[in-house]
Simulated scan of single mutants.
Amino acid sequence: MSSMNQTLIEGFRLKGVSDVPELQVLIFLLVLLIYLISLVGNLTILLLVCFDVHLHTPMYFFLSNLSLIDISSSTTALHKIFVIFATQNHMVSSSARMAQLYIFSALAYNEFSILAAMSYDRYVAICRPLRYHSIMSRRLCGLLASVSWGFGCIEITPAVVFISRFTCYISKEIDHYFCDALPIRDITCSDTLLMDLYILIDGSVKILILFFLTITPYIFIITSILKISSSAGRRKAFYTCSSHITVVAIYYSSIILQYMVTVSGRNTGSNKFFSLFNTAIVPMLNPLIYSLKNKDVKLSIQRKLNLHKIKY
């Protein structure tokens, strides 16, 4: 029992992405490059939405929230990779472990919720265009964003409480590069039944509900688009929501693939690969998709670049 208590006091050791020495530099450089691209892209979106009055609309308000979530989640999940490479310190305290688990998991739910709110915004824009500004008021946008952020913070609390009550561990090495729920579960010898049931039933049900809330508006959107007589009008309507559809498809497909790999036997290497995809590549892709496929964002970047040239 004393050794178990000592484990709790000293904290845990994160194994990292790979324990092959020859791959350490390559992995570090690759993850660092992806992270920097993600950080620059999402910060660009945030700054454009903040300082360009042309982007002070509900759609870009939610997009700025999505960028903030992506910056926060990728930083929370990936920062230990950089610390391990720079200092060779794999250790993480028990309090830091729980903080990272809570923040990252809450942000994941926040992203599900924001994507649902963005779907509703696109539904109103295409199916109720004459009432768009009256429906998508600042008050409603603020309420939807607040509910989205609050939902993640509340939803993940029970699972974190279950994990915080684990009292014994067969090992103090977490076979991952950040403190995720399942790798922590794998090394405990405490009863995990309540946590497993909560994740399986409550988590799955609520994610399905959020998926339903995200997809349902697009059923009405597609129905409305098909009623447009002109092909140019249909293309414009599809173009309006194409960026968001792409982001939703990438995010949900990556989560589903990771869940399938996890359920099918939890191969550690595959699990880490999909975790890296979700925590590094997806946050990098989101601003790129909105920058490349969104005319307003491209025009905003051009305006800011031209303004910079004029000043000099």
Rank of each mutant, 00 (worst) to 15 (best):
K206L: 13
N271H: 13
L55N: 01
L23I: 10
L208Q: 11
N5G: 09
G269W: 14
D52K: 04
C179M: 07
D52H: 00
V263G: 15
K15H: 02
L305M: 07
R165H: 11
P217Q: 08
I301W: 09
H176G: 04
Y259E: 02
L14I: 03
L210T: 14
F220C: 07
F274C: 09
N306L: 02
R122Y: 13
L107R: 01
L55G: 03
L36P: 07
R235A: 05
M59I: 10
D19I: 15
T279I: 07
A280P: 13
A249Y: 09
Y259P: 13
F28L: 09
L43W: 14
M118W: 00
I34H: 06
P129G: 04
E10K: 10
A280C: 10
S254Y: 14
S137D: 02
I301G: 08
N271S: 15
H244S: 11
R13Q: 03
I215S: 10
T44M: 09
I301N: 12
A181L: 14
L14W: 12
I27F: 11
L66H: 04
S113Y: 04
L55D: 02
I156H: 09
S3T: 03
M260V: 06
I81K: 02
D180E: 06
L32S: 12
L144W: 00
N278D: 02
V49Q: 05
I154M: 08
A96R: 01
S291P: 02
I225C: 09
F12E: 01
C189A: 10
I126V: 07
F112P: 00
Y120K: 05
S94T: 11
L285P: 00
N89H: 08
A145T: 13
M4L: 13
I170L: 11
Y102Q: 05
Y177P: 01
G265V: 15
R234A: 10
L32Q: 07
E22R: 06
F61E: 01
T7H: 15
L26W: 12
G152W: 08
L30G: 07
Q302H: 11
T7D: 03
Q88W: 07
H244G: 11
Q258H: 15
M284N: 07
I209H: 13
S67I: 06
V31F: 14
S242A: 14
S148D: 09
V261E: 06
L101Q: 01
A116D: 06
F274I: 11
L39E: 06
T57P: 12
I221H: 10
S224P: 09
V297F: 08
K298A: 10
I310F: 09
V282C: 03
C50R: 12
L26Q: 14
F104H: 12
P217S: 08
S146T: 12
S113C: 08
G16W: 07
S67P: 13
I199Q: 15
V20S: 05
L29P: 01
F151Y: 03
S95P: 05
T57S: 11
M136W: 00
L115C: 01
S229Y: 09
G233W: 14
I126R: 00
V17E: 05
S204L: 08
I215D: 13
P58A: 06
R97M: 06
N286G: 08
L210D: 15
V263D: 04
S2L: 03
T76H: 00
F162A: 05
G142P: 04
L115S: 02
V263T: 14
N306R: 12
L33S: 12
Y120I: 14
M59Y: 09
A280Q: 11
S73Q: 02
